[in-house]
């Protein structure tokens, strides 16, 4: 049996643009080499412009996303306001725009909570090596929403095509101050 991180497969990436951020994931759910589903999104929405991408063991993706939804709901009831993107010690990739400051924010975590604040991009999942290569090659500072969408999509699709455990379509969120665009990418089905 392999590492729990590699059983179900999956990839996630977030990028910063000019007054916007993007977060994208693939749609595959597998059991080792066998694909179970091609509709398993790994990005979850917790508040306006606060998105969380989770990769790794699928059961923990579900558990953490549910637990996080519970915690966020409790926060909203207690504080009587929406939660803003800031580090939480349970989430692998976080992307959003701070509603008060309007600043784009992304960060990543390892599974035991080490935070990685990045000014450019965050990658995670079984295709992380490939994503590091494509993002480092394609990303540039101050991309507008449309250019950022194209960049993150090309980076994700090309990366997952070189990873046997990721792919089968992708989902992309472009997050601006007061607008979120969700797009579904077909991608190779193999």
């Amino acid at each position: 049996m392999g590492s729990p991180f590699d059983i179900n497969g999956g990839a996630c990436v977030a990028m910063v643009g000019k007054d916007c951020v993007a977060i994208a994931c693939d749609l595959r759910l597998g059991m080792q080499a066998l694909t179970i589903s091609n509709n398993f999104p790994k990005i979850f929405n917790y508040a306006p412009s606060t998105y969380l991408g989770l990769t790794g063991l699928a059961t923990d993706v579900n558990t953490v996303s549910d637990l996080f939804r519970y915690k966020v709901n409790m926060y909203r009831l207690r504080e009587e306001r929406h939660i803003s993107p800031r580090p939480w010690p349970t989430c692998p990739v976080l992307a959003g725009i701070n509603q008060t400051t309007g600043k784009p924010f992304i960060c990543g975590f390892d599974s035991i909570g080490c935070i990685d604040f990045a000014k450019d991009f965050i990658v995670s999942g079984t295709a992380s090596d490939q994503l590091f290569g494509t993002c480092e090659g394609l990303w540039e500072p101050d991309l507008g929403p449309e250019d950022l969408f194209e960049t993150i999509s090309q980076a994700l699709l090309s990366a997952v095509d070189r990873d046997a455990l990721s792919g089968w379509g992708a989902q992309v969120y472009i997050i601006e101050k007061d607008k979120v665009t969700q797009r579904l990418l077909k991608g190779r089905q193999d």
């Binding site: 290569g133 494509t134 480092e136 999509s153 699709l157």
Partner: peptide
Amino acid sequence: SLIMPFLDNQVNFKN
């Protein structure tokens, strides 16, 4: 593994 997907995209225009 870092370079090859970049090449797929930029040399063979994959995706």
